[in-house]
Amino acid sequence: MSQLLQVVELCKSYRKQLGLFRQTRVQALDHINFTLSAGQTLAVVGETGSGKSTLAKLLVGIEQPDDGEIRLSGQAVTLSNYRKYNHVIRYMFQDAERALNPSQKVGAMLDDVLRFSTVLDRQQRQQRILQSLQQTGLLDEHINFFPHMFSAGQLQRVALARALILEPKILILDEALTVLDPTVRAQIVNLLLDLQQQQGLSYLLISKNLRLVRHISDHCLVLQDGRVVEEGPTEQLLDRPQHPHTRKLMGLS
């Protein structure tokens, strides 16, 4: 069986201005390889600047890799078929409160996503909207709510509904859970685990909260300066970290 997501020798560098005339290149991602199958969670851990968010940006197609390939079910994706594949990989915002337009009702916001990316008619869109609200534990009448009318936990559910409405196969959670308060986080974690079980959704979890990584993920990659320095099944990796950098991230040295 071909993997749902396969990343092969992925590279990305940025030019960085040093003063007026000097530039250097920063290798944000350096020959990254991994696979993710349906119903699995892959965690990516590393310090700020280690390349985690760059990886997320390449996967959702906001930026293009310099080299290497992203394959979905065996098919290489390119920016030209972005519209097609942006359904498959979706991104959940970290700060739902700031990411949502405060003057737009939730229903209209979700409708925009559908109008931009699908050819569904009005009625089909309405159906999808209600379905995604229901999936995330919200109510039909929330269509008419503005973002400020929600609590923090509900807003995170709205962000999740927005990510799920295109029925993706992979969801990227870039520190989306880290900022939540513990009781709200527990609710969202349960919702995510549930969705994974029911629908085989896959997650790419980017988080500095290693307790969360341990609980949710199956496999884990440790990034340092754009390179994978250690990887393995999460439990094994966190129980017996081999690389000094992993140990450092765990606060062991």
């Binding site: 009781t183 527990a186 609710q187 974690v189 349960n190 439990e235």
Partner: peptide, 24 residues
Amino acid sequence: SVPEFQPDLQPKKPLFALPGSIPT
């Protein structure tokens, strides 16, 4: 709600979660 304090909780099992959220 913290997995670390629940050594018997298997990975990927639901966490204990209070319903609702803190009132304004």
